[in-house]
Design a protein around this nucleic acid. Structure first.
Lengths: 217, 217
DNA sequence: GTCTATAGCAGGATAGAC
DNA sequence: GTCTATCCTGCTATAGAC
């Protein structure tokens, strides 16, 4: 029906605009008037469709954020191909590529990481859901992929710490963009992103002991 | 004078309590009533001493945060000793130790990193000051220390990216404590912190290619 | 310098017309 | 389903007594 169609659109518009604003400014700093203005709809629409501001926020994670995380995981898996024992180098490369140049647009990527960084610094109900449904399973998959290539005395916990450290770097270069730009004195353009991917692969694989770049070529 | 002394104390108490609250909840989510209640003083005191809530927030960075950052840098330098060409291993170890078990108490460290993580995600005037006055000079010092030991073809920019990545990991394990605890399924106690230091040293030096632990022993 | 009281406004939520 | 008008809470900031 036409009516249903229009409802969908308003609801979707609210979700889209609210997500952008929550990512930029955080939950408390955004107000409903701002959201509805951006979504070009009436002030009462948020309460009509979502019941409350709080629930709109949670719905953004339930629908938008989770869907994007799934897209990222699918992209990662398909970029690995199906040859089952992948080298750490191949896995790290696919990870860095997925999270910095993968299926998301620049704006989407930024938003995605801003939202999760905010949740990690100050958890709400959303974080538990994300960790249980997305992060833990993904870390488990990565662990299983990496374990065969690791030295025998690496424990499961140490492997998880390694994976978290890679994510920490990816997260940082996405949520702290302004700081990075100012420190490195360079705009966050396509060229810089390419450099970042290279860097993240190298650092994750070899740390400071550095670029085995020659061997990779 | 007694009066001046008491003023100082009230002002200090406000700074202390406000910092804790801003770190936990973010600027917008904290209100003056909460701060003055925690500082056990009158509602009007914040405006009397700081002029506005906003200026109280900035003062926390100007006095408290910067002072702590200085303490951390001093601690780091003195733990290196004065032998000028330090190995990367020694530098990384001193860094990890300083930021995870250095001069700050657990609560101070957590607060310190929560505040900077919030600023990085959503910069205010405070960030520019911090970057210019503390972060850039510190990165410069670290670069100069590390450069001699790096392979010839490492550019200055790549070196800075390496340093930022180390900080990203340190920052993550401090500001995202709740997420880490839930993922790793283990409390953030002294034993875990020791493990974290070990991990950060190892990962920063060798990345996934892993623990040259045997050689270090 | 400290307090109470309150001005003045912003924001979440809802009632009720259309 | 969409809109306007409005209630009500809770906030910052300040005036003015002590």
């Amino acid at each position: 029906m036409t009516k249903d169609h229009e409802n969908e659109l308003t609801k979707e518009r609210i979700l889209n605009e609210a997500e952008i604003l929550f990512a930029q400014k955080g939950y408390k700093s955004v107000n409903i008037r701002e959201i509805t203005k951006a979504a070009n709809c009436n002030l009462a629409a948020v309460n009509y469709y979502f019941g409350s501001k709080k629930n709109l926020y949670l719905d953004i994670f339930r629908s938008r954020w989770m869907a994007r995380a799934k897209r990222l995981q699918e992209f990662f898996k398909s970029s690995l191909g199906s040859i089952s024992p992948n080298s750490p180098a191949k896995i790290v490369e696919a990870l860095a590529y997925t999270f910095l140049k993968g299926p998301l647009s620049e704006e989407e990527r930024h938003r995605h990481h801003q939202l999760i960084a905010r949740e990690m610094a100050q958890p709400t109900e959303a974080l538990e859901m994300i960790i249980d449904q997305m992060i833990k399973p993904f870390i488990k998959e990565l662990s299983d992929m990496l374990l065969p290539s690791m030295s025998k005395d690496v424990t499961k916990e140490e492997l998880i710490l390694n994976i978290l450290s890679m994510f920490a770097i990816v997260l940082y270069f996405n949520f702290a963009r302004k700081a990075v730009t100012s420190i490195i004195n360079r705009p966050y353009d396509s060229e810089f992103k390419t450099k970042l991917i290279e860097h993240i692969i190298n650092f994750s694989l070899y740390g400071l002991s550095g670029s085995q770049k020659e061997e990779l070529k």
